[in-house]
Amino acid sequence: HSIEQTEMMELPASGSLNPGKLHLVSKLKNPSGSCSVDVGAVWWERAGSKEPCIITACEDVVSLWKPLDTWQWEKVYTWHFTEVPVLQIVPVPDVHNLVCVALGSLEIREIRALMCPCDGEHGKQALLKSGDIKAVLGLTKGRLVSSSGTVCDQQVGVMSFAEDGGSKEEQLLMPPEETVLTFAEVQGMQEALLGTTIVNSIVIWNLKTGQLLKKMHIDDSYQASTCHRAYSEMGLLFVVLSHPHAKMNESFGSPVFQLMVINPKTTFNMGVLLYCLPPGQAGRFLEGDVKDHVAAAVLTSGTIAFWDLLLGHCTALLPPVSDQNWSFVKWSGTDSHLLAGRKDGDIFIYRYS
């Protein structure tokens, strides 16, 4: 077992916008030096108490880190993947001792469940799904939704896990006649699920009955949009989308996220707000995550940018540390921290206030 020392670092001040919002609290140094692909958080229960742990993924290894005192971390378990590389970590909310991973080269070929080790035992893993998998997302109440197959034989299914990560069952949802690329839960509506499709539609399912409730075409200005957050208010559906292919606009800059409003009854929709980079900042959306009213995105420039979705503007910029570009960013599902990773495998944990 290796123990990594916590290192308090000064935030890079030059070029930072409101750096006071970000406080580096801890760092996990990658001892292997191999290419890091993702990070996530999981609750690990041992001897009756639950601890918020970090999961890191390199192409061939997934590691579980438990917290020690004063923000130090101890690597307690690793799962090895020699045949198919790891693509992403898929946290499953409301269950403990379990995290899922998506494996594949360019597209997802397998989804596996990793069971965190109980006292004196080894961590186990189980194959949940294999094939041509297009999208996967962990949902509240210990559920996992995925879409697979081609548009002709597309299968959309939801698996359910027990709170301790045990037993699972799968329910099929009615597939739309378009390939589903991403999923998003509708906040506060446990039975509602959204999907975005390859031809820029948003679909809504009833998770309880498996019904496809609506398919709505949205603006064609931005292709391959990903839905990061959805909520319903006053009979309208609000969605936060990211636009990887959005181009710089002379009047308002480079749009990275967009808030759209949809009337699910009529399918009429319109853009409400564009979340753009501040003047002088270049780059497009590479990867990002939204939690409550804060959105974070890694840009093609290697900087991480933050937006307050209520205020409507960029609130902080985190430039590359030691000339190493950021490659991924995630909000922790176990607390309010931000997990930021670099290609060299080092993970930085920030408090955003």
């Binding site: 009615m174 509506m189 039975e191 509602a192 809504i204 009833n206 009955t209 019904q211 496809l212 409730l213 609506k214 319903s232 006053m234 009979g235 309208l236 559906l237 409003v261 949809i262 009337n263 699910p264 009854k265 009529t266 009429f268 929709n269 319109m270």
Partner: peptide, 23 residues
Amino acid sequence: CSKADLGPVSLTWFEELSSEAPP
């Protein structure tokens, strides 16, 4: 654009769409 452009809204849209959609 305004809210009126979105057409009539319903607070119970999810239940209504569920009762209208094929099972």
